[in-house]
C-alpha cells in the first residue's frame, strides 16, 4: 500500500474533474471493499477521491412510481427504506443477506455494485490472476474454484461477482445512472457488469472516470411479487454459493410477468432471459419453473469442483418461483 493523495469531492463535477486530472485516482465511498483491496496490494490508487459526502444519499420516488436511489445511500438504509421493503422486498432481502450489519452501515449502493470478485487468486498478489494482472494466467481454472463460475466464464477468468444487491437489482430491471465528463447516461444493471471474455480486468462497462451516481428502480409490474434467497456455507456472514432473485406475476394461473437472476454463478449477476421467455405465458406450476430453469442452465459449463451449483441454482429457482406463485395465488 503506497502513500496516496486524498481529495474530498465538493460536487459530482468536482469529483470528475479531479479524477480526470489524476491518473490512477479512484473514487472512495464506504471503502469497505476498496480499502480491503488496497491493504492486499490489489488496488493501488494514487489519489482517493472521496464521494461519500456528495448529496447522493437520498431515496426518492420517481414520477412513474419507481425509485431513484442515490449512489451513496448506505446499504443498511436502503434495506430499511419503507418503500424498498414494501415494493421491492427482494432488494431489501438481498442487502440484508450480504456482509454484516457493520459493513452495511458503511457500504454504499454504488460501491456495492462495484465490488470486486472474492476469488482467492485475485486477492493474492503473490499469484497469477488475469483480472489483476492481465496475461498472467488464471490458476482458478485448475485450482481452487468451488465458489467460482459455471456460466459465462472464459479460459481467462472464472471469477464470480460477489454482490447480493446487484442480483436483486438485475431481476428488478434496475438501471445504473452514470456521470462522466462527457455527460450522463444510464445502463440496465443487467448490462452494467460484463462477462470476462478476454478482458477479465474489466468488471463493468464503466468508462474511465465515470462515476455511479444512482440506481433507478422502475415501477412494479401489476400483481408482481419478488424474493431473494441465498445459499451459503454458514448461516450468516458468508458470500453466496448460489443465490436467486425472482419476480413473478400470475393471472388466472398463467405467468404474466417473470424476472429471474442468479448470483454466484457468473462474472456478473446472471439474468435468466431464456428462462423468462419460457415462463411468460406458461402455467404457474412447478413443472413450468423446472423446465425454465433447466433451459437457462443448459449453457452451464461447471468446473471440476463446482458442478453442484448448476442443479442447486435450478432447484433454488424452482423453489423461489413456487413460493412466489403460491403467495400470489
Amino acid at each position: 500500500m503506497r502513500p496516496h493523495g486524498y481529495v474530498r469531492a465538493r460536487s459530482v463535477a468536482d469529483a470528475l474533474a479531479v479524477h480526470a486530472a489524476h491518473p490512477g485516482a479512484r473514487y472512495l465511498a464506504g471503502g469497505t471493499n476498496l480499502v480491503d483491496l488496497m491493504k492486499l496490494g490489489v488496488a493501488r490508487p494514487t489519489v482517493l477521491i472521496d464521494v461519500r459526502r456528495l448529496p447522493l444519499d437520498r431515496v426518492e420516488e420517481t414520477a412513474g412510481g419507481g425509485l431513484l436511489v442515490g449512489a451513496t445511500v448506505r446499504n443498511s438504509d436502503l434495506a430499511a427504506h419503507p418503500l424498498v421493503r414494501s415494493r421491492y422486498p427482494a432488494l431489501s432481502q438481498s442487502l440484508l443477506s450480504g456482509a454484516s450489519g457493520q459493513l452495511r452501515n458503511a457500504a454504499t449502493t454504488g460501491g456495492n455494485l462495484l465490488q470486486r470478485t472474492r476469488c482467492g487468486y485475485f486477492q493474492d498478489v503473490s499469484k497469477p490472476c488475469n483480472k489483476r494482472e492481465p496475461g498472467s494466467g488464471c490458476p482458478a481454472v485448475e485450482g481452487s474454484h468451488r465458489e467460482l463460475a459455471v456460466l459465462g466464464h472464459s479460459p481467462h477468468c472464472v471469477a464470480t461477482h460477489p454482490s447480493d444487491m446487484a442480483v436483486a437489482l438485475t431481476a428488478l430491471d434496475a438501471s445504473v445512472h452514470l456521470r462522466g465528463v462527457s455527460g450522463t447516461r444510464a445502463l440496465p444493471v443487467s448490462e452494467f457488469h460484463r462477462l470476462p471474455g478476454d478482458r477479465p480486468e474489466l468488471d463493468t462497462r464503466l468508462r474511465p472516470g465515470e462515476l455511479v451516481v444512482g440506481v433507478e428502480l422502475p415501477p412494479v409490474p401489476p400483481g408482481a411479487r419478488c424474493a431473494y434467497r441465498k445459499v451459503r456455507d454458514r448461516a450468516s456472514c458468508a458470500f453466496a454459493l448460489v443465490s436467486v432473485a425472482a419476480r413473478l406475476a400470475v393471472e388466472n394461473g398463467r405467468i404474466v410477468h417473470a424476472a429471474l437472476a442468479f448470483g454466484g454463478l457468473a462474472h456478473r449477476p446472471w439474468r435468466a432471459w431464456t428462462a423468462e421467455e419460457r415462463l411468460v405465458g406458461a402455467p404457474a406450476t412447478g413443472a413450468s419453473f423446472a423446465r425454465a430453469a433447466e433451459a437457462e442452465l443448459e449453457a452451464a459449463e461447471p468446473l471440476r469442483d463446482n458442478a453442484f451449483k448448476v442443479r442447486l441454482a435450478g432447484d433454488l429457482a424452482v423453489q423461489v418461483l413456487g413460493t412466489l406463485a403460491g403467495e400470489g395465488a
Binding site: 486524498y6 471503502g31 480491503d36 492486499l40 457493520q102 452501515n105
Partner: peptide
C-alpha cells in the same frame, strides 16, 4: 479486513468496522 468485527466502533452513532475506514 472487515471479516471479524473485533474493531467495531460507533461512528456518528452507527456501528462500523474501524479497520476499513480511512
Amino acid at each position: 479486513h472487515g471479516q471479524c468485527g473485533a474493531c467495531t466502533v460507533l461512528v456518528d452513532g452507527r456501528r462500523m468496522l474501524a479497520c476499513l475506514l480511512p
